[in-house]
Design a protein around this nucleic acid. Structure first.
Lengths: 134, 134, 134, 134
DNA sequence: GTGGTCTAGACCACC
DNA sequence: GTGGTCTAGACCACG
């Protein structure tokens, strides 16, 4: 779990930790059942307060992404969306709109954006057919 | 400029205004040279504090998305990304990673995500070749 | 919002606050749009740290029960379950099993339990037909 | 005594064991005088630390639900609530309030909740009049 | 003035 | 040793 966190970014530190972990799972670098570093260890590595890491872990648990076992440690959970289908679609659509908007303003045209998406997608677990439909 | 702002969303109101304007430009609903409503008018329409709209306009101007001519009004600027090529790529890639991560956790597989992207893309100006490559 | 919290109970203080608020909403004592006390005020009333109240508010927000508006305050949200139908059923069934188990051990028979349920239900919003089906 | 325990649930393992045993008694799957597995056997079956099972047994004994005869084994006790009538009522009412609150937030209306309760009640011993009133 | 974040440090339940 | 809770106190973004 080597990564860093930038306290000067506008995104909250605990949110950066959450995103990093979510992304590692989505990329297949972390798989269901894998153990995460302890709150204290990760806090020391990132040079932040243990409470901050704890907050990230707790929120990820409430989303069903990870699962903590008292006195044992924290583990990657089996993926199984808790939200309703419509809520999940809405969430993806919002991020998608944001991406398309930003891509326009950054001067990407359709083709170059699609190229980028396809390349990037290869390093994610969303590819292939190992996951059930939406 | 008919749109609303939801103060109960977690996103700051001024940021919602910025995103909405950026999105309208990206969708072609607003084009270079089009006049935006005055700060007061928009504030009244959205039922928010004028300072909030002012902040949104100010930040958009600093990004080069709109341009204010004192005593005349505020207008959509010609699109010409100020950032370096690598900075623009990085920005798009970050949003893309976030989308792919979220899509994974929301249970989308490659095909359903691609379908969603293609459908959504049709309503954006990113299509066609009217803008220079990435 | 007159209520107290007992730090000596095994239930965490922030959870007691959450339950109290959820219950007031379910009883119709708090309705959609109503303002909750500020974090600081409630903390002072309950004689707990503001962070503890803040945690309760944040968790309730993540459940969609209340909604905070930056710089303005915290309000009761419109009820609209975010969880999938199966997750909601599971949650109710678990509490129901716990109730039935406890009622048995406390010496209630079917009839006396049913009487108790019917009486108690009258003071809750679950009664009547003003809410959509499950 | 075939059941499992889920260490990833938020409820402590020893509490899960307690609830399971209480529920089996309430469902009539275990009756007064029935012998429970030894601490070691159950611990092995559930793949948990023997101390955890021991803690569950100890707490259940202190509640009067089971009774241990040294050198002989552990048995389901005759049900006879030790608590006062008012304490027992309070305990049931608290769980009931929690159920009604949760049902409201999960979108159940009176009828659907009542249906659920009646169905579920059939598999519990609370039915009939074999136990004295509340 | 509102809520949100972070730190430092203490104590506790669990296994 | 693991995570969870709470306090006290500081700082910040928002409207």
């Amino acid at each position: 779990m080597l990564f860093t966190v930038d306290p000067s970014r506008s995104e909250a530190v605990y949110a950066q930790v959450m995103h990093e972990i979510r992304q590692r799972i989505a990329r297949g670098l972390l798989n269901a059942g894998d153990r995460l570093p302890t709150v204290r260890d990760l806090a020391q590595t990132l040079v932040v307060n243990p409470n901050t890491v704890g907050k990230a872990y707790q929120l990820l648990e409430s989303e069903g992404v990870i699962s903590t076992r008292r006195g044992v440690g924290t583990f990657v959970a089996d993926v199984s969306p808790k939200l309703s289908l419509s809520a999940r679609r809405e969430r993806v659509n919002e991020l998608l709109d944001r991406l398309l908007t930003e891509a326009y303003h950054m001067g990407f045209n359709q083709d170059s954006l699609m190229d980028t998406i396809e390349k990037r997608m290869k390093s994610f677990q969303t590819s292939g057919s190992r996951r059930r439909g939406q």
